[in-house]
């Protein structure tokens, strides 16, 4: 008989402190083990559940690893062409202004092919939430160089490391959109530790609540890992992220309530 260390006597509804939100479906996430996409999905879904807006929210899925996000969120969702999610969200919010609207995009989608849509939605001050998961690589297509790939970082299309003289520089699009008058909140978070997750959730909650104020884009970057693309086990990938990604993409609020954070 294997010892299970179960305590069935305390498993009562009043003692329940954490279970998967009902705003996520029971479909198994298509992400690799340890991927921050799953955690970020969960936070968005928990915020939607806690705000009671499951039937009043429309999400937009990108192209990339999270292309199937619509299978995981139990809300109405649209799948956008690569990079165009902010254009879809612009129309959805303008045509259904009483709905909560968010896009969920990776770094290739948002900061390369969709740069124009991102910047102009932010500059127009569309009253939407943009969730931006930045892992510095194209995950779904097999680990190619992304606009956010760090200098010197190897990928399948920068196998000897990103040589900025040849391949150009990583784009800090979050700092860039913070400069635009149409963004009301711009923050950079992570989901690798319990403390980071709790903080990121607060930021996502704030971003969704901002839509009620009708003051422009709330932009939440989540610096994340790509265990498969980085070719590291999940725990090691998180360590690599702390040591390499965070110095280049420092966590914290960049713009709050329409004001730059000093």
């Amino acid at each position: 008989m294997v010892e299970t260390f179960d305590k069935p006597e305390i498993r009562t509804p009043e003692n329940l402190v954490y279970s998967k939100t009902k705003v996520l479906t029971d479909n198994v996430l298509s992400y690799c083990p340890g991927c921050g996409h799953g955690t970020t999905h969960r936070l968005v879904a928990e915020v939607i559940e806690e705000m009671g807006i499951q039937n009043n929210t429309i999400g937009v899925a990108p192209v990339g690893c999270s292309v199937l996000a619509y299978n995981f969120f139990d809300i109405d969702m649209q799948q956008a062409a690569h990079g165009r999610a902010p254009a879809l969200a612009t129309a959805i919010k303008r045509l259904l202004p009483e709905r909560f609207v968010f896009t969920y995009q990776g770094d290739g989608d948002l900061a390369a092919i969709g740069t124009a849509e991102t910047i102009h939605a932010c500059n127009r001050g569309e009253n939407i939430v943009i969730i931006f998961v930045n892992n510095g690589i194209y995950g779904m297509t097999g680990g190619q160089m992304a606009p956010t790939t760090l200098p010197g970082m190897p990928t399948s299309t920068s196998p000897y490391g990103r040589d900025t003289q040849i391949m150009g520089n990583p784009l800090k699009i979050t700092e860039l959109v913070a400069q635009l008058p149409g963004t009301y909140m711009v923050t950079r978070q992570a989901v690798h530790t319990p403390a980071a997750v709790r903080k990121a959730k607060k930021a996502i909650r704030q971003a969704f609540e901002n839509q009620i104020l009708n003051k422009g884009v709330s932009f939440v970057e989540v610096v994340s890992n790509c265990n498969s693309g980085w070719k590291l086990p999940p725990v090691k990938a998180n360590e690599w992220m702390v040591n390499h990604m965070f110095p280049f993409y420092p966590l914290g609020d960049i713009k709050i309530n329409g004001e730059m954070v000093k």
Binding site: Q78, L88, A91, I92, L95, E117
Partner: peptide, 16 residues
Amino acid sequence: ESEVAAINMVYGGAAC
């Protein structure tokens, strides 16, 4: 901002 954005706004609206 572009024809590309415009048609994708159409997609977003049509999907509603």
